[in-house]
């Protein structure tokens, strides 16, 4: 830009079109309503009326995390609620919240929350609850993992922190 050009008084918003965002929200709402279902990008893109090529990027730009990771946070949140509020076996909860195997559920749950499903259940039950007047959806949202990095990245970081002599253990 040359000095002769005057900058606009207010910068042009760089955000996304609210009408597009409203359609992306529809896909997020659908995940919220049925997080146990499979949500391939093609299905979500169709809900939003966005091309498959653009959907994941647009979703991430709008909501701060990619759609598959958002789905994961909702599944973990729901699994936590079921572990806390019901006596159902962990296996049943794993399948009901959208996982295809108990092993994948247990491993992912541990990677995300740093404790096993049964340890979470035991710990939660030992706490006195006093939240009768708070809507359940609010309580559950407090249990939603804040997955600001990919699970694979979190797994790698946790591993590095545990192994002596790795790059993460640089001397001060």
């Amino acid at each position: 830009m040359t000095t002769g050009q005057s900058a606009p008084a207010t910068p042009i918003p760089t955000g996304q079109d609210p009408r597009l965002l409203r359609r992306l929200l529809r896909a997020k709402d659908r995940i919220d309503a049925a997080s146990h279902e499979d949500w391939p990008v093609s299905r979500l893109a169709a809900v939003s009326g966005v091309s498959v090529t653009h959907f994941a990027h647009a979703f991430r730009q709008a909501f701060g995390l990619p759609p598959h990771r958002y789905l994961l946070t909702r599944r973990i949140e729901r699994a936590k609620a079921l572990l806390r509020d019901t006596d159902r076996p962990v296996t049943e909860i794993a399948f009901d919240t959208g996982w295809n195997s108990l092993g994948t559920f247990g491993r992912t749950f541990r990677d995300v929350t740093d404790e096993s499903p049964s340890a979470f259940r035991t710990r939660e039950r030992s706490l006195t609850q006093g939240f009768d007047r708070v809507p359940a959806c609010y309580l559950n949202a407090a249990n939603r993992p804040d997955l600001n990095i990919a699970v694979s990245e979190k797994r790698r970081q946790d591993r590095d922190n545990k192994v002596p002599g790795s790059q993460a253990m640089e001397p001060l």
């Binding site: 207010t10 918003p13 996304q16 609210p18 929200l25 709402d29």
Partner: peptide, 16 residues
């Protein structure tokens, strides 16, 4: 609201 703020508010509402 200035135009940018108005746009931001519309975006926030549309994002739920």
């Amino acid at each position: 609201h200035d135009a940018v703020t108005a746009q931001t508010l519309n975006e926030l509402v549309a994002k739920g």
